[in-house]
Design a protein around this nucleic acid. Structure first.
Lengths: 347, 347
DNA sequence: CATCGCCGCTAAACCGGTTTATTAAGGAGA
DNA sequence: TCTCCTTAATAAACCGGTTTAGCGGCGATG
């Protein structure tokens, strides 16, 4: 009575039953008469009782929580709209499930520690693996920690974990085709670190779309997914003796920074240069010119991944899931190729 | 031996002591001889034992976790660089403390549920309150849930919780003064929902700086902290019979969208219009023209708030903390007032 | 009418830690 | 040498749930 929390024993006493009966009633297990169950639930509601998660976790040896490790450098974390949307998707699925999300932000070189901290002490039942690598050292790590996991996109290495994937390639293919239809023949790509599977997928799609059209592979610059990286990659492309007439970026942030870099050079988009981003950041529609880009349902991706991981953590084996592919959104940053105008226009 | 997890009993047996001794040794409590303690710790390390958090939480009735509820609409969540930086700050302080961060993303009208879910079931020992309101209904809620909390900035209502504050006003004051020095006399403000204390603080600082210079209060438009809101607020300002020559925005995202909106109108920044943002998003330096804005050490803010909350959750009363104020960063989006050029330049 | 089986419920063990009460051993003081 | 006090360590209770074993009571069955 004087103690703070209401416990299962209080409920049992008030309902005139045993602790076990309350537990059974709460978890909808057979062995409790319907009217008894209802009486118990009513008493529980009246007393405002909710089972203690730690106690429940201790006896079931399941934390009823999922983990997410974010290992990006702070600058990129702050710029990217992926995580906020993704986390919103996770939570949309978690609401009402009794599961919680435990976060871990770590320096990129301390990534493994993040997973170890979550696993040890049994804080979570499983983790969501984002930013999946071609060869991902987290896979063996998680196996050794015997943590459940799902990967966002398939790693190229062997993985026992279900992959929840979004195919970026159709949008990139469509982007390149769109540019070719506009008359572009020199189409560059600003990618990211090649260790990431999504970077490779986008770069490959760009290459293959060019090859399919019988065009030479345009210049490729590796950006860093940051605004700074996008700006410097763009400057490097524009400094070439024969600068490209169009650039396909692996992210909106790099593309938006590219827009500014082009303008500094006196180029006007899309007259002198066509630009295509990737992500469809909310800002993309509100820069000048509005950015042609690729859209992915990140929130839906988060939901699908979470659903699979919860099922997996409950012991049900899960198949791979294929989410709807990214699609191209046409806006105003792409236009007809206009090479003579552009060449040597600066200085 | 065959069971998965190593428990304290395994360590005790291996070290030839009792469970209690292991617990004492781990928690550095007196009553264990130095060499015994070292032997125990060595055995624990050899066995790879880490105490189970749920078990520990059950006996100490402390979750060793903090909670953060994000109640912004998805669009704004995705655009804003605040949360990623803030969360990075929280984690920077949490690393090595044994605490974890539990996240809860909810629809703005379901905010209270988020806190209830965290409190019930004892998932967290305390919560960080962001986006503090002038009259904040979460304060009485948290008192009734008897959850510890710190607020980011002081609510105007009574609050028993320590406030960890950053003063936005000096930067806004400096921004307005800077514009006045450049010859501007008609300085508008795009703010946000007036329920937020930081919105009121920025708007008030803008008003007071104008009044201090003997200038009339310029036009005020309430934005929504989204790119879309920034664009439409800007258009509304530029549609006035006598459009302002300078706009101070309450956020970078709105300012960047404003840049594009001005350009659509045929205005050139800063020649025809000066623009100042707030936040110093990483992108701010990489748009064209580079955005003059206000910078806050959000990461440091997160650290300070987390430090205070952990201490509070451990039972130590905490004083209010004042973090370094926001400061103005001069870039290229502000220039001398040029009103004749601008008026009627569109159409 | 005796037996079986099932239903509804209880008592008690258990999860893996922390903490309190208690005991054994060793050293100082008289 | 005996007593007293301190220190080191243990055994057992406890945190708040879940889960297993078991036990009355009742209807169905033979």
């Amino acid at each position: 009575m004087r103690s703070g929390r209401v416990t299962i024993a209080d409920v049992a006493r008030a309902a005139g039953v045993s602790k076990g009966a309350v537990s059974f009633a709460l978890n909808e297990r057979p062995g409790v008469a319907v009217d008894t169950r209802e009486r118990i639930l009513k008493v529980a509601a009246d007393l405002g009782w909710t089972p203690s998660q730690p106690a429940r976790a201790l006896s079931t040896s399941r934390a009823h929580a999922l983990g997410l490790v974010m290992a990006r450098p702070p600058e990129i974390l702050a710029e990217d709209s992926f995580f906020p949307a993704f986390i919103a998707g996770i939570e949309a699925e978690l609401v009402g499930s009794g599961y919680a999300l435990v976060l871990q932000v770590v320096a990129p070189d301390r990534e493994h520690d993040g997973y170890r901290r979550l696993a040890r002490g049994g804080r979570v039942d499983g983790v969501l693996l984002t930013d999946v690598r071609v060869e991902d050292s987290r896979i063996p790590l998680l196996e050794s920690l015997s943590l459940a996991a799902v990967t966002l996109n398939r790693t190229h290495a062997d993985s026992p974990f279900p992959a929840i994937s979004v195919d970026d390639r159709p949008a990139v293919t469509a982007a390149v085709r769109h540019l070719i239809e506009l008359g572009h023949r020199d189409i560059a790509h600003v990618s990211g670190p090649e260790e990431y599977v999504h970077v490779v997928a986008r770069r490959t799609a760009w290459e293959q779309a060019l090859a399919a059209a019988g065009l030479a592979r345009g210049p490729l610059v590796q950006g860093s997914f940051s605004a700074r990286g996008g700006a410097s990659a763009t400057r490097r492309l524009l400094d070439r003796p024969e600068p490209p007439t169009a650039i396909v970026y692996a992210s909106d942030i790099m593309a938006i920074a590219g827009l500014a870099a082009a303008r500094e050079r006196g180029l006007e988009v899309p007259r002198d240069l066509s630009v295509i981003g990737f992500d469809d950041t909310p800002l993309a529609a509100h820069v000048h010119p509005a950015l042609t880009t690729a859209r992915t349902d990140v929130l839906g991706w988060g939901r699908a991944a979470t659903r699979a991981l919860m099922a997996l953590a409950s012991g049900r084996a899960q198949p791979d899931v294929e989410c709807p592919p990214a699609e191209l959104i046409l806006r105003d940053s792409t236009g007809p190729s206009n090479p003579q105008q552009q060449q040597g226009s600066q200085q």
